[in-house]
Design a protein around this nucleic acid. Structure first.
Lengths: 192, 192
DNA sequence: TCCTTACGAACGAACGTTCGTTTGTGATAG
DNA sequence: CTATCACAAACGAACGTTCGTTCGTAAGGA
């Protein structure tokens, strides 16, 4: 394949980029075409509709996080270490797929009701991974007994999901340092 | 018959509501008119432009947070207590002005470059309040010496700004409990 | 020869906004 | 107490533009 023609994946990627930057409703099909050197109408050779593009980007985001949680939990180990794994995995997904993640976090509410509720369900499942690890730590005594697993998982995920809003890879905080800082911050409130 | 006529403030309020719910670009002037029982064109008796509406809602949000920080710091006291005041104030603003805050947090990036940079500057000033209180706590020895004030203020603000995304006033977590949980979570990572 | 890719014109709908007109209301003058 | 007036609020048609999408057609590799 020599010719630099565009594939469906190219379109979805560009959509993730523009949706992240200008929002779903702030991005037109003609904008998206321009990003790929095409006319807006040409995109319909690759994609069913604009909404279809959003669905694909958001579902890719959901899948990335789900896969990350599965990998983090598969290793097993003590709750403290597992939580660190979950945090490191989440940060890896955010930093490795910024546009997809931004779209996943900010534009999922623009989906039609059916797709949106599936995404919300996926998010809840993902949050459960954090909740369960924290609850396990409370049960086995490695975390404080007055910890509310649901609230703490929300707090930790709030920090993790905000990273795309402020983090700059070229800044003074490296990726490993970021993982450590977030983990230490989260665990300080949990450790007995 | 008492015709409930609309004022400029009514329009701005309704705009905050719809911008929060469907996003700036997802809200049309006709949507906004319908919300008030008007035609879209009638709004121009109260407002210069759609962008103008966004400016007013976002600047109201910026002002609310700024006023909250001023009030929290005016009381003085130890860094730990001041941080609690900042957190309580922030949560008060979020819970008392949900739509304005949601628009402030999510739609400010849709502003034109000039207004957007002013909002970013205001946000940075607000974050400085948190940074300075944390730095003061490090200096006077009430917080751990290896705390990075900038990172920790970002983490705390991440938790605070995410509240509008998940908190339900009718849920099991009351407002005072929320303030306590967030404060304890934040201070656990700071206390030596 | 297919099949994929892209074009470019065109569609109807919706967009933000303008404008001349109508409506209701409160103040004022007789 | 009523008639008149000014004015803000709202209407509704219309503007030029952009929207998402469709379709017939052309090009070029497999």
């Amino acid at each position: 394949m020599v010719t630099a023609r565009n594939t469906r994946q190219d379109v979805v990627e560009a959509a993730g980029r523009l949706f992240a930057e200008k929002g779903y409703h702030g991005t037109s099909m003609r904008d998206l075409g321009r990003e790929l050197g095409l006319l807006g109408s040409s995109l319909y050779a690759h994609v069913e509709s604009k909404q279809d593009l959003l669905v694909h980007v958001v579902e890719e985001g959901a899948h990335l996080f789900q896969a990350s949680a599965s990998a983090a939990l598969a290793a097993g180990g003590a709750p403290g270490g597992q939580l660190r794994q979950l945090i490191a995995g989440h940060i890896g997904v955010v930093l490795g797929n910024r546009d997809v993640v931004r779209t996943y976090l900010n534009e999922a509410r623009m989906l039609d009701a059916e797709h949106r509720s599936r995404v919300i369900a996926a998010r809840d499942t993902y949050e459960q991974a954090f909740r369960h690890v924290i609850a396990a730590g409370v049960t086995d005594g490695s975390f404080r007994s007055d910890v509310d697993p649901k609230l703490h998982s929300i707090f930790i995920l709030s920090i993790l999901n905000a990273i795309e809003r402020w983090y700059r890879p070229e800044g003074r905080v490296g990726r490993n340092r970021l993982v450590d800082e977030v983990s230490d911050f989260a665990l300080a409130a949990l450790k007995r």
